[in-house]
Simulated assay, not measured.
Amino acid sequence: MDKVFKALSDATRRHLLDRLYVNNGQTLSELCDGLAMSRQAATQHLALLEAANLVSTTRRGREKLHYLNPVPLHEIQERWIDKFERPRLRTLSALKRKAEHAMSDKPQFVYTTYIEATADKVWEALTDPETTAAYWGHSNVSDWQPGSAWEHRRTDGSGIADVVGTVVEAIPGKRLVFTWAGPDEDRPDGPSTVTFDLRPLGDSVVRLTVTHENLRDEEEHRQASGGWSAVLSNLKTYVETGKPLSSPPWS
């Protein structure tokens, strides 16, 4: 939390967050446009915001896009504001939805978490059927080769897959991309796409960024937001402690 307050203490960094609120998913050049600062200075400010988990990044081709991550702000609200003014300031979720939908051709949901583990361990947690069953309640089954099918199977022995898709990209320990849709789902605009980006920070910490694109509407966005938050919290706990949360967060 100290990093969050340090990041927010500077007016320039607050202005950068304001710009991402208005138009989420901007490149460094876009954020620098109209500001009296060099790219190097902006990069330093963004690095502090990213270290505080207030900004998440993802790459699309050669571009690095920056996204507002309101989760730390929400934690501040709950700890120091919400308990005194519960009827007010319930706008963070709306802020997040607006920011993520600002440009339809950019990722619609981005979530970043930090896990105390190696990249190989986190990769295993995403792709190993037994491990995914332990913290997700479903087994992710595939050979994880580009072009191969994958299934999100129930663990009740029925073998039913609630989600299916195709592996788009798989770089062990670094990046996993696959399509996501119900087995009989009619999606005129095509399936949504989920991307896991793993970035080691030293030898024992991984920054995991999940991007879920091509969500159809506000309801699907709401479901994705709640679902991924729960799953990733359980994943982090399982990888770091060897066991999931005592109560499934989605229940």
Rank of each mutant, 00 (worst) to 15 (best):
T58K: 00
H45F: 13
G61L: 11
A42I: 08
C32S: 09
R62W: 14
D33K: 13
M37F: 04
D33T: 15
T27S: 15
V55E: 04
L28S: 04
V55R: 07
Q40R: 10
A51G: 10
G61C: 13
Q40D: 09
L28G: 02
L28D: 04
L28M: 11
R60W: 03
R39L: 06
S29T: 14
S56Y: 03
T27V: 14
S38Y: 09
A52G: 06
E63G: 01
G61Y: 13
R39Y: 02
L46T: 03
E30L: 09
R62N: 13
S56V: 05
R60K: 09
C32G: 08
T43H: 00
L31D: 11
L31H: 06
T27C: 03
G34Y: 01
L46F: 10
Q44L: 07
A52S: 04
S38N: 05
L31S: 11
A47F: 10
S29I: 15
E50G: 01
Q40G: 05
R59K: 13
T58W: 03
E50R: 08
G34K: 08
A36D: 12
T43F: 00
Q40T: 15
S29Y: 09
G34Q: 06
T27P: 07
G34T: 08
S38K: 08
L48Y: 03
L48S: 02
H45R: 10
A51F: 01
E50F: 04
E30G: 08
Q26I: 11
G61M: 13
S29R: 14
G34I: 06
H45W: 00
E30T: 07
E30Y: 02
T58G: 03
T43V: 01
L48M: 08
V55P: 05
Q40E: 12
R59N: 09
A41T: 10
R59H: 11
L48D: 03
A52W: 03
S56W: 09
G34V: 05
L48W: 04
A47E: 14
R60E: 12
L28W: 02
E50M: 05
A47W: 04
T58D: 03
L28A: 06
L31E: 10
C32Y: 01
D33P: 03
L48C: 00
E50L: 04
H45C: 12
E63I: 04
M37R: 08
R60Q: 14
G61Q: 14
N53P: 01
A41C: 02
L46S: 01
C32L: 15
T43E: 00
V55W: 08
T58L: 06
A41N: 01
N53I: 04
A52E: 07
M37S: 07
G34P: 00
T27R: 02
A42N: 01
E63Y: 03
T27K: 05
L49K: 05
L35N: 11
E63S: 14
C32M: 11
G34W: 07
L35I: 11
A47P: 01
V55G: 04
N53K: 09
L54Q: 02
M37E: 13
R62D: 15
A41Q: 06
T58Q: 01
L49N: 02
L31W: 09
L31K: 10
E63Q: 15
V55Q: 09
N53A: 15
L46I: 15
S56M: 12
L35V: 12
L46A: 06
N53C: 15
A42W: 05
C32A: 13
T27M: 10
R39A: 13
A51W: 00
Q26E: 14
R59F: 03
A36M: 04
L46Y: 06
A47T: 11
E30R: 08
A36E: 11
G61A: 10
